[in-house]
Each structure stands twice: as structure tokens, then as C-alpha cells.
Design a protein around this nucleic acid. Structure first.
Lengths: 262, 262
DNA sequence: AAGTGGTCTAGACCACCTG
DNA sequence: AGGTGGTCTAGACCACTTT
């Protein structure tokens, strides 16, 4: 019943200091509590898989927060796969998800994936060119813009060629000069950095390497490759990027978690 | 300020009838309001892409619900990609997501995908066999069980062979007899029906069709195929199914929406 | 300065699960 | 029957955007 906020004056000042520190850091209480529960209860093995967590009422007292705040934190842990919540019964700790922290369903660049996996990834054969297409061309029509920058490169891990990536970005979204200046291997990272990418719709197929591809990726003619075709959009749904990626499956497999329909 | 619930007695009885009807149907108010906003505001084009929705305060009055309830409904619309919410500014309607209502990131069977896409899918070459493997075998070790049922079949749309699917389910999870009795093309649907499947971790690669595969799928030797390897688990994280799928990419491509890391 | 969404509280009633 | 999570309310303060 303390805290600086809230509907009525509190008698206890216990949490006030904490509150101020947190607000300074602009960190929501619910996030603090979620992280506290994650580290102190779960990751520390204080509660092991199968164990029941304290009830929401108890947690309310333990953390001195309202039930709504506690629930928000618990829901977040549930969404991340750490606990299971059953009405009328309680919350139990789940076997640690061997996750796949970030699968292909997350909008992250291959550079980022590789780095997270502890791999050093290199960019070769970089070509950045400006395309001025007539208004009727599919590319211009797709973006609703005539000036588009094409960025093509191959990716290498150690001595192995692992991917060919070709991106198209309209000049109006990110000028060619900005791309040249900021490009460090990933167009997507550049877009994310500028807050220009929110989501992409991605199609995955298997294709046989043609002459051009097998030369670029150094694979035999007809070798099976994963092809990803993506259209990336910003928060407003505006198309900001078209991307085509070919992956040599020996070096790169896609992983994702499929969840039950809610 | 009305309603039967709530902290204090209400003066207006306006919503009481609605409330009772809703509670009978066990439908949360927040869901009703979300659907009402979706249909009356967005799908009806009363507010078009780019338009601002009423503020939360206004919605509170319009629907006679508390702000928390209104916010839950709005968040749900945001999660589904219908609106954008900006602090200090308001909520705006987004261009209708051409979504991909349900991509590969959802735990649905290929039968379900095909049906949703308006395709009639057929099951051929069905084989259901019981495997009793010594405890040291990888299959037995994986499931922690010696008795496992193997279900193998091909899928066909019209005259085209589109997939080969092989599933393994431990007898302890679903007895062979239950599978024989309930199988209508999809092991996953059977597991979902019994509440036995919560999520799966899935690996996607491209492979070249070997002799056995090209015979079963009627594709040329060495043709590129999509291979999905899945381990499906229940709410407790217990392994309930291993599944291998080979897809002829001409007939089946995978689609998914990739979202920015929160 | 006014308005909007983000966060939080305390209290209430209900449905469900477990003794 | 008692405890637990699910849903809901009214009110408050804050941070951010807009005017």
C-alpha cells in the first residue's frame, strides 16, 4: 500500500526509494518484477521445473505491487515459455525452453543470427547500384518510386560461402549515400536502426542452384538451396524493402517455434 | 459507471442485460469490445487506413467499459496488426494486413492449411505401424519409451503429389488404436484435438530428392525439396511427437510473418 | 497547456480446481 | 469450502505529442 503513485496516500515509505530509482531509469515496475522472478525464482533454480510458484496473492505481498502488475509480469513469463498458468490451480515452472532464443520468425538479420550463434560472418562481392526504372516496371510499381538502390553481396563463414543476398530499397526510404555510409553487412539492420522496419512477410521455398547461383555460392549445379523472398514494411505498413536470399543448407538451416493457435 | 460487477453499485442499469447475456456465453467483455471495434470501426471502413480512432477516454464512454478493458481490446487489435498505437498521439488504422492469416509459425496441420486455402487434400499410401525398439535406440531414447507408432503417408492435391509426411508418436501419449480410430489425415490435428500439443520446434532445410523420395513424390531424381523436422511438445514441455515432412516446392511454399524483436 | 497513451493501485466478483 | 487465476472497475500520476 505504499508508493508515490496510486490513488491514496500511503503510510509506508518502504518502496519509495526504489520507485524513484526505477522511474529515473524509465523501467516499468512490471518489467522489473518479471526479471526479478525470472532470475530469483527460475534461473536460480529456487523453483525447479514442475514446482509451483507462489500464488498471485502471495507475490503481491512479496513484491509490494498490485495484483494487476504481478499478473502482467506473470503473463510475460508465460509468453516467453518459462511458466504455465492454470486457472484455479496456479503457476508452475516449465522445463527450460531449449529455445531457439530467436528464430526465423523474428525480424533479425543473418548477420545477427550468425553473431548470436558465435560465428564470424564475412561480406564479399558487395555491389551497391542505383536503378532508375521506368514507372511501369514491376520494381518501380511495387515501391511506387522510380529510384531504387540495389544491394547485392555474398556471405561467408570461414571458407564456406553460405548465402547470396539481394536487397532493393527505394531512394525515398533510405538514400544511396546513407546506405553506403551505414552499411556494415546487413540492409535490414540499417533499416531497423532507423526505425524503418516493423515486420516482413516471407516466403520460403527450395530451389535448384542455376549457373549464376552455383558460381556465386560455390556449390554444384542443381544443388538444393533455400530461397527466402521477403517484403519488409514499416509501422504504417508501407513497403520499405524487397529482399531475396539464397542459403546453402549445409551451412544455414532455418529454425522456428510453431505455437498453437490461441 | 454501470454494470453488475465493479466496486460500487451503479446507478444506470443500461448494460446489465448485455452483461448477463455475455456472461452466459462466457465471453470476456474485452473480446466483445475488440470484435466490435474491429467490425464496426475497421472492417466496415468507418475508419479507413490512416484515420485516427477515438481516444481511449472516448472509447471508455462509448462502450461503457473501464479504460483497462478498452486498452486490452486495443492492444489485441495492435497485436493482430490492425492498428498502430503511439503514446501521446493516439491510435491509427493501418492498411489492412494482406496477411497470411496463419503462417507456418502457427501449429496447424498441412491439411488445415490446404483447407483454409480452399484446396482439397488427399491422403495416400497410409501406413500405421508399431515399433518396439530396444531402449538404447535413438527413437526410444528420445521419447523415453520403447513402444512408438509410426504413421507414414503421402499427400495429394488433385493429381499432384505434394508431400510425404512421417510421424512418430509414443504409445503412452496416444495408443495405436486411438490413432487408427481417429486419424483423418493429420497426426497433429489428432494431438491438438486431445490437447496434447502446445508447440513445436521446427527446422527447415532444402534437400535433394533421393531415390525413395522421388518415387513417393513423383519428382525427378535430385529435385529440390523442403524438409521440415519437428519436435512437438505439450504444455509441460514433454515430447509428444516427432515429425518429418518433405514438400514439393512447386505445390507448397511456406509463408510466415517476421516481426521486430519487442 | 491540453490531450493522449503508459503504468499502477485497491477492491470486487466470478469460474475453476483441489482439497 | 477454500484457494487460485480471469476479468473488470474507478481513480491516479506520469511521459510524450501536439497545439
Amino acid at each position: 500500500m505504499p508508493t508515490t503513485r496510486g490513488s491514496m496516500a500511503g503510510s509506508g515509505e518502504v518502496r519509495q526509494g526504489d520507485d524513484i530509482a526505477r522511474i529515473r531509469a524509465r523501467r516499468p515496475l512490471q518489467d522489473e518484477i518479471r526479471d526479478a522472478m525470472l532470475h530469483e525464482f527460475i534461473l536460480s533454480n529456487r523453483f525447479e521445473p514442475g514446482d509451483r510458484l507462489p500464488s498471485e496473492a502471495e507475490l503481491t505481498k512479496m513484491f509490494g505491487a498490485s495484483r494487476v502488475t504481478i499478473r502482467t509480469a506473470l503473463q510475460s513469463l508465460k509468453d516467453q515459455g518459462y511458466i504455465r498458468i492454470v486457472r484455479g490451480s496456479g503457476s508452475t515452472v516449465l522445463p527450460r525452453p531449449e529455445t531457439i532464443k530467436s528464430g526465423i520468425d523474428r525480424l533479425s538479420s543473418f548477420d545477427t543470427y550468425a553473431t548470436l550463434a558465435g560465428q564470424k560472418i564475412h561480406t564479399d562481392d558487395l555491389e551497391i547500384t542505383r536503378i532508375a526504372s521506368p514507372a511501369k516496371e514491376p520494381l518501380a510499381e511495387m515501391f511506387g518510386a522510380a529510384l531504387v538502390t540495389k544491394i547485392s553481396r555474398t556471405k561467408r563463414i570461414g571458407d564456406a560461402r553460405v548465402a547470396l543476398i539481394v536487397d532493393y530499397v527505394p531512394e525515398a526510404v533510405l538514400p544511396l549515400e546513407a546506405i553506403r555510409a551505414g552499411f556494415d553487412g546487413s540492409v535490414l539492420d540499417l533499416l531497423l536502426l532507423h526505425g524503418l522496419a516493423e515486420y516482413s512477410d516471407c516466403t520460403v521455398t527450395a530451389v535448384a542452384a542455376d549457373a549464376a547461383l552455383c558460381q556465386q555460392l560455390n556449390v554444384p549445379d542443381g544443388a538444393p538451396l533455400l530461397q527466402l523472398s521477403e517484403l519488409t514494411r514499416d509501422t504504417l505498413g508501407k513497403l520499405v524493402n524487397r529482399s531475396e536470399t539464397w542459403l546453402a543448407p549445409a551451412s544455414f538451416t532455418l529454425q522456428l517455434r510453431r505455437r498453437r493457435e490461441p
